[in-house]
Design a protein around this nucleic acid. Structure first.
Lengths: 159, 159
DNA sequence: GGTGAAACTTCTAATAA
DNA sequence: TTATTAGAAGTTTCACC
């Protein structure tokens, strides 16, 4: 849980790699007026510190036929069932994100489906999980802002 | 919006690259008993088809001091203000995701902050946006399921 | 479509500054 | 800490199945 100090160079390296993992270190070096070796050393340090956890492709799920996104708020019968319910949710591949939350819902999750029929089946599956008293679905009509575009320095430099 | 047909080989290539963008094509080739050239050609095709939109680093935001995640449901005064409000939300760097939704809320977004004080300021900023009548915040106590672990074939092979 | 090997680019680690 | 450099490793292309 320790905070790690990064300097401006590190932020800019992260920025470019967040935008495209395969940005050659030589390109980064050229842009930042340092050597590729230095980029390598700094990236390695950030990996060792656990700041860089890994890398992943950004997939266009819509093109693959998965155009349906919904958020499902889950109400539990009893709070101590949280762990059990999360395990069941984890078994459904279409539940792509889940958070334990305060406020209105006990658990809050995101599902990705092909269409409304498919989504209905997934929601029924969720409703059937033991310990869930009821759910509330919010269908996404449009994903307007998306993690990807958020460059690090925008977050870092703001107060 | 067109659907694209991928075969089992493509799925497995995606699988490995989703898990780690830098998986060498030679490793993928070895595992799938094809040549590295073939892997290259298939990846290129999926890039050209727009299925692979890009790649990104997975950052441990908690280690960088951003341990606070919350979901904010937004109620609008009038629906036709949606576009305007989304533009304002997009100007706040800590709003990392936003969806237009049906159901309880008009817009649904995710914020990332350093701590509760920081989060409070962000939520106040959101509340101040013209056209928003009120908001409802759900604080994430724990992120239990996370996109990253979802391998493609699990989604593809399910009905 | 796929292959295998050559040509090219990038990474990495060791050495030196 | 950073730069340089050289050998290792990965990627891309292409003539040929």
């Amino acid at each position: 849980m320790s905070k790690v100090k990064l300097d401006e160079i590190d932020h800019q390296i992260l920025d470019m790699l967040i935008d495209n993992t395969r940005t050659p270190f030589t390109d980064i070096a050229k842009k930042l007026l340092i050597s590729a070796g230095t980029v390598h050393v700094r990236v390695k340090k950030m990996e060792e510190a656990g700041i860089i956890k890994g890398s992943s492709l950004t997939i266009d799920y819509v093109k693959l036929g998965y155009s349906f996104i919904a958020y499902v708020g889950v109400f539990l019968e009893k709070t101590h069932q949280t762990k059990f319910v999360l395990e069941r949710l984890n078994e459904i591949p279409n539940v792509t994100v889940a958070h334990i939350t305060t406020g209105k819902f006990n658990i809050f999750c995101k599902i990705r489906a092909k269409d409304t029929t498919h989504a209905k089946n997934i929601i029924f599956k969720i409703d059937d999980i033991e310990g869930i008293s009821r759910t509330e679905t919010m269908i996404s009509l449009e994903e307007s802002i998306n993690d990807k575009k958020r460059l690090m320095h925008k977050i870092f430099n703001e107060l």
